[in-house]
């Protein structure tokens, strides 16, 4: 996904002489090409995230389009107040790009896990939260983010993420979920790196005669209320899937809509149960600990239905 991001950014920077990229000293082997081609618009600010966000605001206030790139906790939490005031309060079109969704940096430890980012970014007025489900959606998300007049947060993985789309030519609109496959009865609504997990779980369910809808809810804020209402017509159960804390993420966003619209549908949340990972683990291992693998999703859905 990092590769998809930077390749898209290179294309955009070619066309837009006011596009800047800032990094907080991360992105080794990813950002060099941008630096080489656009040296006056690339700044490694150093390990100073608060300053980096302030600088991005000042550049945006001077007519620049700024992408700020670093690992999720350092672009959302370390400098949270700068994001809140400098970007959101002032409503500036700065794009925060966080690398390492969920347990991407599993063995690095919980300092590097990204499990609260969606919740805290969602809580900020003016902020748009986009969690692309793979490289194809990443490219589209970055392109579409150029149309936003306010700040956005784009949550990325690292490398080797699966895609669920057969073609790279997908229709992608910020705020509109994508039906990856149609079905009925059950809807698997996933975001970010759980979209491929949802697709695999759907394959397993299909073998049992259950034909779930699979949705990539790439924009968690504003969440696609229309699509959720629509799903509640054809499904009796919506399962949300996210590699994120159970509080404040996709499950909460979808749950809010169900309650507010009084939709006749059950909600099951697949998420991290409000804990920091208690043991060392790779992404795959930690997913297993929290019931986030396709097989576990399949089993729990089956149990919920029977």
């Amino acid at each position: 996904m990092r590769r998809a991001f930077i390749n898209t950014l290179l294309e955009l920077a070619e066309k837009d002489p006011d596009l800047y990229l800032l990094t907080g000293d991360t992105g080794f082997t990813i950002l060099e090409e941008f630096q080489k081609r656009f040296p006056g618009r690339y700044y490694n600010i150093g390990i100073s995230e608060a300053a980096m966000i302030g600088v991005s605001a000042g550049l945006a206030m001077s007519g620049k389009t700024v992408f700020v790139y670093t690992i999720v906790p350092f672009v959302t939490m370390r400098c949270f107040e700068q994001v809140r005031i400098d970007l959101c309060y002032q409503n500036l079109p700065v794009k925060l790009v966080g690398v390492g969704q969920g347990f991407t940096y599993g063995t690095a430890g919980a300092t590097h896990h990204a499990i609260e980012d969606i919740a805290i970014m969602r809580a900020l007025p003016n902020m748009t939260v986009i969690c692309p489900g793979g490289p194809i959606e990443t490219k589209k998300a970055v392109e579409e983010s150029m149309k936003l007049s306010g700040p956005c947060y784009i949550r990325l993985g690292k490398s080797g993420e699966a895609t669920v789309h057969e073609s790279s030519d997908i229709s992608f609109t910020i705020g509109k979920g994508i039906k990856v496959r149609d079905g009925e009865g059950v809807a698997l609504v996933a975001t970010s790196n759980m979209v491929p997990v949802a697709a695999e779980a759907a394959d397993l369910l299909k073998k049992e005669g259950i034909d779930p809808v699979v949705v990539s809810m790439h924009t968690v804020k504003p969440v696609d209320r229309e699509l959720i209402a629509d799903l509640s017509q054809s499904c009796f159960l919506i399962a949300t899937l996210e590699e994120h804390n159970v509080i404040g993420g996709l499950g909460s966003a979808v749950g809010d809509v169900i309650l507010e619209e009084d939709l006749p549908v059950r909600l099951v949340k697949f998420a991290i149960p409000d804990v920091y990972a208690p043991v060392v683990g790779s992404q795959q291992y930690l997913r297993e600990q929290f019931g986030l693998t396709p097989g576990q999703v399949f089993s729990r859905i089956k149990n919920e239905i029977l």
């Binding site: 700044y43 600088v55 605001a57 000042g58 550049l59 206030m61 001077s62 005031i85 309060y89 002032q90």
Partner: peptide, 24 residues
């Protein structure tokens, strides 16, 4: 020019503005 009130923000916003001026 800028929304402030939480301390320690202005200098970095100013750096962004000064950098834009320098580059332009």
């Amino acid at each position: 020019e800028a929304s402030t009130g939480s301390l320690g923000h202005g200098i970095n916003i100013g750096i962004g503005m000064a950098l834009a001026a320098q580059n332009d």
